[in-house]
Amino acid sequence: MTRLLRDYGLMLKWQALSSKTILPISLVVQLMVSFGFVIGLGFLYPSITPNIAKFLTTGAPTISLLMMGLVLVPQMVADSKTAGTFDYIWSLPVSRMVYVAADATIYILLSIPGVILSLILGAAYYHFGLHVSLLAIPAMLLIAMTGIFLGYSLAHSIAKAQITQLITQVLVFFIMIFSPIMFPASQLPHWLSDLHKYLPIVYMANLSRGTLTDLNVNLGQAFAVVGAWCLLGLAVTCILIRKRR
């Protein structure tokens, strides 16, 4: 256990140092996206009320974390595979899951400012109150980890980087347009709304809203379903990264 923690610390340092060059630009982009998102809601819904703004703004963390996990992570992993990074890292006497844990930690830390900023800006701009419970921390972590593990699974199950890039582009559309994060599932065709009963996305949005607002949400069910997807993503990631060519 001590060895694992030591290795985790070292890998975390490695990843943090590697990310420091993108940190400033990442913060600027998150600031701009958060600000743009909040202002943009007013363009989409000219007669927006504080309650509607609360519903929309509290869906933003789910979108942001899913984009990180299912779009950014697979693209970065695909790039690393092409560059031969994993061939080097996997040759070190460190558990591969320790490396993934360190990598995930950095992604989560990088995404925190954007999540917090969009919530604060939204609440201030549209004059609604947030009811943040302590469960918001595990809820956000669970959403982020689920996205990251599913992203890792996706990138490691596909041999060609270009295919991974294409799939992530399709996922952007699926998350933004065809997932009931920013609108109720009842607005989707039946088959798609039924499909979302088995996917984690709508439950992620519920986790976000249930722990950040006073909206009535089945949190137990949301934690259970997203937790199950997180474990599935973790298991598949474990299998794929241990696989030898």
Binding site: W14, L17, S18, S19, K20, T21, S80, A83, G84, T85, D87, Y88, I89
Partner: peptide, 8 residues
């Protein structure tokens, strides 16, 4: 292949 040392 090159080692992943950018930033270090």
């Amino acid at each position: 292949t090159q080692v992943p040392i950018n930033g270090l």
